[in-house]
Amino acid sequence: MLTLQSVFIESPNGVLIDALSETVNQGECLVLMGPSGIGKSSLLGYVSGTLPKALTGRGEVWLQNSRIDHLSAEQRHLGLLQQSPLLFPHMTVEENLLFALDQKVAKTERRQIVKAKLNDIGLPGYGHRLPQELSGGQQARLALLRTLLSNPRALLLDEPFSKLDQTLRQEMRSLVDQCIKEANIPAILVTHDVDDANALGNRIIELKSDF
């Protein structure tokens, strides 16, 4: 369960997010909609601990029963998926995934798990390729898989489909939906695409501009 309690985000030009309070249950996806520049991505930045320096944020973020807004980004164990997949260009597909895989997983099993997961998302045998050799859709799937392999306690999605074409979008939507249910973690999706929102959202919130 991911809980936001009166979260404010301010830019030098005014308030972006004004006292937002929401609770997202396990396996549920909350969709935040609204025009660009309204502070949707900033909200995800605040939740994940990577808010740009120019902005200030306040308010509590609870994950399960612990408060996480004072933790550093790496201690929060949140997965964030953005427009650009940010796959590490100097590592192979397999290495990118191994990089994310929990350290507790035994050495002997790591490769097998990664291999199996690659099969699951329809990229068998791609392990030794470099990410930039893959198509956009493949990269998107890979980025999702990489995020999930790190066992996030919640998933944040920042317009992750906006660079994909219509067919790929649909595929990705159902893949993401399936993953959220399987992992049974709370998710927040930020988008300005109504189809995204309808396909994934258990609840949809429209953010409006105050100024």
Binding site: T50, E74, H77, S84, L86, F88, P89, F99, Q103, S150
Partner: peptide
């Protein structure tokens, strides 16, 4: 692009190693 390092830190809780293996590796 600090995004790479931030993503790495979300994926793996080893900031020092991530700094070496991602940021410095990309800046080689």
């Amino acid at each position: 692009d600090q995004g790479y390092l931030e993503q790495a830190n979300r994926l793996r809780t080893t900031p020092v190693r991530n700094f070496w293996q991602v940021k410095l590796a990309l800046l080689k």
